[in-house]
Write a protein that binds this DNA or RNA. Structure first.
Length: 524
DNA sequence: ATCGAATGTCTCC
DNA sequence: TGGAGACCCTTCGA
């Protein structure tokens, strides 16, 4: 059905070439296919001459008109206009023009109105609309596809009974129970680190398309024995790829969100939980043991862009939103209970990250600013940041504390610079230590780069690159390139990458839904 | 303030 | 086989 529709769409745009003779093709003006699609709708009552009226025309014209009419009949018999209309409806529903609606929403916020006039059932001109007209569109706008509450974890790409998937789920739930008690070293010598990195390789077997849309978030399961990668996509999909399972069906695709999945983490306390945040306003927890995407948080009014675990036990979460406000989510209270902390007038929040040691501190990166806040000092009206990290001249893609001590911050900025700050003393000043020139102009189609620390190497971070041949770069905090991961199988820009917390496994996602995994041969 | 161009990769024909 | 079009909604510069 889907294939037929898309075929129909392409036919609409481009009439079949074989309907014309070769000589006609040469004379045909580019505008004619358009005219044809108009003819098709009203072939009976339009003013085009019938076959009988062809007497005054050249044989070429006659043949041409005959072809047009035959084509029109052919198209009419296919009922293409109906199919196309249905198709357009489907596309509209699948990917609602949310983002076009965003701009007017900004203005609504300025006047203190969080909801559109349509949602308030008020006509823009001030005339109230009949309820019958506004009711059906309400649900559409609230959430085009997904109902609130838990969603079953059913792969979209599996045709069989799902036995294979059930087996995978069981494995993932089991392996999540085995705690990885390997002592956190945090810092090995750069030399031995480099040696370990050089053992990492990519192969055809470790590159796989896992989502339809561009990857907007990546997460690696912390298991020491199996390699499980999760990718969130702009289309709202989540792809799960188990590289340890050596069979054809090792990729599973889910639709827990209707808009881009902006942030994705396995729970640090229970890695059988995959938490996903989306612009659709929801934060969900995919649970391998119950095979459900629970709804942890919902706020349809804003686009949540990033979250982090506030408490070490993952019971409370900090959620940053595009419009600049922050929410505190307590997972122990059921339903959607949350507290809106404050509304920053300073603009959008792209990432939030909690300090790994002093968990009352968190860093937010926005369009213009990078701020460190104390969560205890936040109030519902206006909260002043403790410190601002200056120097950034363009929009900031991310800011992260170093993984073990939090003594460093790495930021990725659109001004083509990666910056490392010294955050060892938060109460006073955050001096800039290093500036690294790095092409961050990914353009319109590619997900922006975000430099992230290697969780097992306190002084090194990972970032995608535009350089040829395509690579993922690992920098030391001093700005030196420690290593570049490349290989024949990496032929596109890996915008987002994550490193495994204990093993030498790195997963990078690109903007066409492909995951690229670098790993040591003994690491499979 | 507003608007158009540009960026890379994949898929389809 | 290669080239057009889709993707997407940012950023810069006119």
């Amino acid at each position: 059905m889907k294939a037929v529709s898309s075929k129909a769409e392409s036919l609409l745009l481009k009439p079949p070439v074989d309907a014309y003779s070769e000589s006609e093709l040469e004379h045909r003006s580019p505008a004619e296919p358009v005219a044809l699609s108009v003819d098709m709708r009203s072939s009976d009552e339009d003013s085009a001459p019938g076959l009988d009226d062809f007497s005054g025309l050249s044989s070429y014209e006659r043949k041409r008109l005959k072809n047009i009419r035959e084509n029109a009949n052919f198209f009419a018999s296919l009922q293409l206009s109906e199919s196309a209309a249905r198709l357009r409806e489907m596309i509209k529903k699948r990917q609602p023009p949310e983002l076009k609606r965003k701009r007017p929403k900004k203005k609504e916020n300025e006047i203190g109105c969080r909801r559109s006039m349509r949602l308030l059932k008020v006509d823009p001109l001030g005339v109230s609309l009949p309820a019958a007209l506004t009711e059906p569109t309400l649900d559409e706008e609230e959430n085009p596809l997904l109902p609130p509450g838990p969603l079953e974890m059913i792969p979209e790409n599996q045709d069989d009974s799902g036995e294979l998937f059930k087996a995978s789920l069981k494995t993932w739930a089991e392996m999540s129970k085995i705690s990885s008690e390997r002592t956190k070293k945090g810092l090995s010598s750069v030399k031995s680190y480099k040696a370990n990195l050089s053992g990492m390789a990519i192969s055809e077997a470790t590159v796989r398309k896992v989502t339809r849309g561009a990857i907007s978030s990546v997460a690696l399961h912390p298991s020491e024995v199996r390699t499980l990668v999760a990718a969130g996509a702009k289309s709202g999909e989540i792809g799960l790829w188990d590289l340890t399972r050596q069979c054809e069906d090792e990729v599973y695709v889910f639709y827990p969100h209707s808009q881009p999945v902006s942030c994705l983490y396995f729970s640090p306390t229970n890695p059988a939980h995959l938490l996903s945040l989306s612009y659709d306003g929801t934060l969900r927890c995919g649970d391998f043991s119950s095979a459900v995407f629970e709804e942890v948080y919902r706020n349809e009014g804003s686009s949540p862009s990033s979250f982090d675990f506030l408490a070490e036990d993952a019971s409370t979460l900090l959620v940053g939103h595009w419009d600049g406000h922050l929410s505190l989510v307590d997972r122990r209270t059921p339903g959607t209970s949350y507290e809106k902390l404050f509304n920053s007038s300073l603009g959008k929040i792209r990432t939030v990250h909690v300090h790994p040691v002093s968990r009352q501190y968190f860093i937010s990166a926005g369009l213009r600013d990078v701020h460190i806040y104390d969560v205890r000092c936040l109030n519902s009206r206006r909260s002043q940041p403790l410190i601002s990290l200056a120097e950034h001249s363009k929009s900031i893609a991310s800011a992260y504390f170093s993984p073990v001590t939090g003594n460093r911050v790495v930021t990725t900025c659109a001004d083509c610079k990666l910056r490392v700050f010294d955050s060892s003393s938060i109460s006073s000043e955050i001096p800039l230590l290093t500036t690294i020139r790095h092409n961050t102009i990914t353009g319109r189609w590619l997900t922006r780069f975000q430099a992230v620390w290697d969780p097992k190497q306190e002084d090194c971070f990972i970032v995608g690159s535009m350089a040829h041949p395509r690579r993922v770069e690992i920098f030391h905090e001093t700005g030196k390139t420690v290593y570049s991961l490349l290989g024949e199988c990496l032929v596109s820009v890996c915008s987002l990458s994550v490193m495994h917390p204990t093993r030498y496994v790195l997963a990078g996602g690109n903007s066409s839904g492909r995951l690229h995994v670098f790993m040591r041969q003994d690491s499979f």
